[in-house]
Design a protein around this nucleic acid. Structure first.
Lengths: 202, 202, 202, 202
DNA sequence: GATGAATGAGCTTTCATTCAT
DNA sequence: GATGAATGAAAGCTCATTCAT
C-alpha cells in the first residue's frame, strides 16, 4: 500500500519532470519509467495509457490547487475580495510551480485525448469556484446580475490562462506575475461590479 | 500561375475540412491530398510539412481577419467603441466559420511546432490590434494609464479565446456568441475605463 | 539469454538469406523479420538499422574467417607456404559459402554506410593477416624487403576479391576456385619472393 | 547537333561533379540538372535513368582510358614492358582524375543496376587489354603458358582497383601512386614471367 | 527539343502497449 | 505486483520519372 502509492507518486513526479523537459509528445513512456525507477510495464499497472498520466497529473494537482484556493479565498469576506484573492492565487501558483505550469499550459493541450475527451470534474470544479464567486457577488448586489456567471468564469479563466501561457513561454527574465494579478483583478472587479447607482435596481 | 494558386488554395481548404473533421493528429497528409484532388507529393511542393499546412492556414486566415477587423473598427470613432467592435467581430468571425474555428481553437494547439516554434507575426499583429486600441484609449484619457496594454491585450484575447473554445466544444445547440460579446465588451470596457472623475466616457 | 542469442542469430541468418536473394537494396526489413520469425520491431532491439545488420553480418563472419584462416596458416611453416594457404583458404571460403559470398562481394558494397563510414577493425585485421605474412617473409629473407607490406596486402586482397566477385557473378557452371587459387598463389609468391641471389642480403 | 552534344556533355560533367561530392545515392537528379543548367526533364532526353548517367560516364570515360592506354602501351615493345606501362597508366589515370576516380571506385559500386545488370563492353574491353598482353607474353614465351589470361587479368585488375580505392578513401596526404605502380608492376611481372630457363626477359 | 510541375509508389523506424515469466 | 522483451501498426516524406505545354 505504502509502496504502491509510492510508485504511483514516483511515476507522476517523473512524468512532470520529463514532460516539462521534453514535451509530452517527445517524451517516451520509457523515459518516464526510467526516471521513476520502474519498469516500462509497471506504468500500465497504475495508468491506462500515456495520456492518462497527463490527465492524472492534471486531476491531482488541480485538486490541490482547488483546496489551496478555497483556503485562500475563505479567509476573505466579500465576493469581490475573494475574486481578487483568487486571481492572485492562480497566478501565484503558476509562478511557484514553473515545471507544472509548463505541463499545464503547453503539454496538456497537445494531448488529443485531453482536449477532445476530457470531461473530468476538476476543471469544471475549478471554473465553478469562479462562477460561484460571481453568483455570490450577484446575490450580494455587488456584481451586475445580468452577467452570466458561466460566461464570466470562462472570461476570467481565459484571461489568466493566456497570461500564464505567455509567462511560461517567455524564455528569460520572466516578469513577476503579482503585478499582472493586480491589474487583472482591477479590470475584472471594476468590469463586473454593479454600478453604484445600479446596486439596488437588480 | 492561375493553376498554381488554385492548387495551393485547394490544398488549404481541403486541409481545413479534413483537420476539422478528423483532427490534425489523426488526419493523414494523404487525406488532405485526396480531398484536394492532388497527389500526395504535390502537397510538398507548396508546404514544407504537415505542420506547415496548419501554420499557413493560420497565417493566411489571420491576415484576412486582421484586415476585416481593421475595417470594422475603423468605422468607429473612439477607442472604447472600437474595442467593443473588436470583441464583437472576433466572436462573430468564430461563429461564422465553425470549421476554421475548430481548427484554430483545437487542432492548432496540438501542433508541437506551432506551440513551441511559431513566432509568426500574424498572432502578434492581431494581439497588437488590441494593444493599440488600449494605448489609444489611454492617450485619449479613456483608459487608465496604469494598465499595461501588453497585459490587457492578452487578458482580453485569452477571455475571447476561452469563450470561443468552449463554443466550439459545445456539441449541440451552440448558443449565440453575440450575447457573449456584449457581456465581455461590457466587462472589459468598464474594467479598463478611466474612473468617471478621470474621463468623459459615456 | 538463450533465446536472446537465438533471436539475434536467427535475424542474421535470415538477413543473409534474404539479402542474397533479393539484394540488400530491394530487401525490406520486414522480409528479414518474417524470415526470422520475429516482429519488425524486434530487429531494432538487436540492430541499429538496416545497414547495421549488414555490417554485423560482415563483422561476425569475418571473425570466423579470421580464426579459420589463422588456424589453417598456423599449420604451415614458412611464410610463403602460409601465403599459399591463405590464398587457398580465402577462395575456398567463398566457394563453400556462396550466399555469404554474394552478400560480401555484391550487397555489402551497395551500402553507403559500409563503404563510406565503416572503419571496423575486422577488415583491417583480415588485411593485416596478409600484411603480417609479408613482413614475416621479409624477416625470413624470403620476400623482397623493398616491397611495402601495406601495398602487397591490398594487391593480393584486391586480386582475390575480384576473382571472388567474378565467381559470384558467373551465372551457371561456376568454375572451381581451387585452380584459381593455385595460379594466384603462384603469381604472388613468385612475384614477391626474393631473387635467389638476393636471399642473403635481407 | 552542336547544342545537343553540348547538353549531354554538360550533364555528364555535372554528374561527375555532383556524384563525387554527394555520392551517387544522395545526389538527386535535380542536383545534376541544376548543375548542368538544364531542366530536370531534359536529363531524360539524353539518359534512360539515373543509373544510366553513371553507366554512361563509365562507358565514355573508359573509352578515353582505353584509347589512352592503348597509345601508351603501343609505344613499348615487349609485352612485359607493356604490362608495366599499363599498370603505371592505370594508377596515373586515377591520380590525375580524383573526382572521376571517386565515382569509379565508390559510387559506381552502389548502383544496383551497374553491379547486377551491366554487361557493357567497355569493362570487358579494358580487362581484355590486360588479357591480350598476357596472351601476347605467352606467345612470346615471356609469360608462363599455364596461367589463364582470364584469371590473370582479373587478378591484376583487382589489385589495381583495390589500391585505387584505398587511395580514394585516404582522407588527406594521399600518397603518390607512382611508387605503388612500380611495386605492383614488379610483383606481377615477376609473378607471371616464365622461369629464366624458359625466357630471356631481364 | 526543352521544360518543370506534378506524380505516387515505396519503406524504415518508432514507441505505446502487452503479456509471459 | 513487477518486469522488460517483444510486438506490429502506422504514415510522413522523398525523389526518380513523366508528360502536357
Amino acid at each position: 500500500m505504502k509502496s504502491k502509492d509510492d510508485k504511483r507518486v514516483r511515476i507522476l513526479s517523473a512524468a512532470v519532470k520529463v514532460f516539462a523537459q521534453k514535451g509530452f509528445y517527445n517524451a517516451k513512456v520509457a523515459d518516464v519509467a526510467k526516471n521513476a525507477g520502474v519498469a516500462d510495464g509497471t506504468i500500465y499497472l497504475y495508468f491506462k495509457n500515456k495520456d492518462d498520466i497527463l490527465i492524472c497529473i492534471f486531476e491531482e494537482e488541480m485538486e490541490k490547487f482547488i483546496d489551496e484556493i478555497k483556503g485562500v479565498t475563505a479567509v476573505e469576506t466579500g465576493s469581490l475580495a475573494k475574486l481578487r484573492r483568487f486571481i492572485h492565487a492562480h497566478l501565484d501558483l503558476v509562478q511557484r510551480n514553473p515545471k507544472l505550469a509548463q505541463v499545464f499550459q503547453l503539454e496538456l493541450r497537445q494531448s488529443n485525448k485531453f482536449i477532445k475527451e476530457y470531461t473530468g470534474s476538476k476543471l469544471k470544479e475549478y471554473l465553478n469556484l469562479i462562477g460561484d464567486l460571481i453568483a455570490e457577488g450577484q446575490a450580494e448586489g455587488l456584481i451586475r446580475v445580468e452577467l452570466h456567471p458561466g460566461l464570466v468564469k470562462r472570461a476570467l479563466f481565459g484571461a489568466l490562462d493566456e497570461i500564464a501561457t505567455h509567462w511560461v513561454l517567455s524564455k528569460n527574465g520572466k516578469h513577476d506575475l503579482g503585478q499582472s494579478a493586480d491589474q487583472i483583478a482591477e479590470i475584472f472587479i471594476l468590469g463586473v461590479a454593479a454600478r453604484p447607482s445600479e446596486a439596488k435596481h437588480s
